[in-house]
Amino acid sequence: MNEATQQTPVLEARNIGKSLGGRPILSDLSLSVYKGEMKVLIGPSGAGKSTFLQCLNHLITPDTGELLLNGERISPANKGELRSLRERVGMIFQDFNLFDHLTAQENVSIALVKVKKMSRRDASLRAMMELERVGLSRRAGLYPAELSGGQKQRVAIARALAMDPEVILLDEPTSALDPELVGEVLAAIRELARGGMTMIMATHQMDFARALATEILFMEKGAIIERGAPASLLAPGAKTRTQAFFARLVAEESAC
């Protein structure tokens, strides 16, 4: 890899701002993620994590700021450019958002056919490969309603991976899951990280963040108020907002 690509972030957001319903939701957020990095967004409910992630692939159009994919500025007015941005930036949602009328395999293959213009045959083969990777090749013919939450989220991961994205955005991928199903999804994401996938993930899984994040960004009221490597933010005795936030989460969990 040459010097230039080493220094160009895969995805860069500059001074993103967004108001919704007349209320500022995000103010002046900037973030650069480099190849193979995993940025973890944490923060209380309503902090704006989901809104920010959706600004990063223009599912929500930011009011201000700009996005650069591999150093190229995305112009939001250009529909083709937006579609190609979304094609290259994968997204995993909290509530899976599988297509209810398609089997697991079709869920993965449909965008290959419609967006990547692959032949049906190649798309199906590729879909099987991706399902295999998340351990679901034997569930390929089942519909979303026939899958557990954990399996649905793994299909969603396969669906995103099949597009060969340059970066994947994950919005609390395990929050909607029963506790016993969290592990299988985190394992799939860990596998991605190990494979060098670039990711930006909102999560409340502290151990996961500690182990895998290159940087933790703590968000509150639409702003990043603390950022740093997990080793420093979560060091024993560190008096950081991040540390306090996780301590409270742990306390709440043991309380109920």
């Binding site: 599912l59 979304r86 094609e87 297509f99 009328h101 449909i110 965008a111």
Partner: peptide, 20 residues
């Protein structure tokens, strides 16, 4: 959410409507 997922994969509005 399914509409969002389709857009997130790069579908056009027409493709989203016709396929999803």
């Amino acid at each position: 959410g399914q509409v969002k997922a389709a857009y997130a994969l790069g579908f056009s509005t027409l493709q989203m409507a016709l396929c999803i």
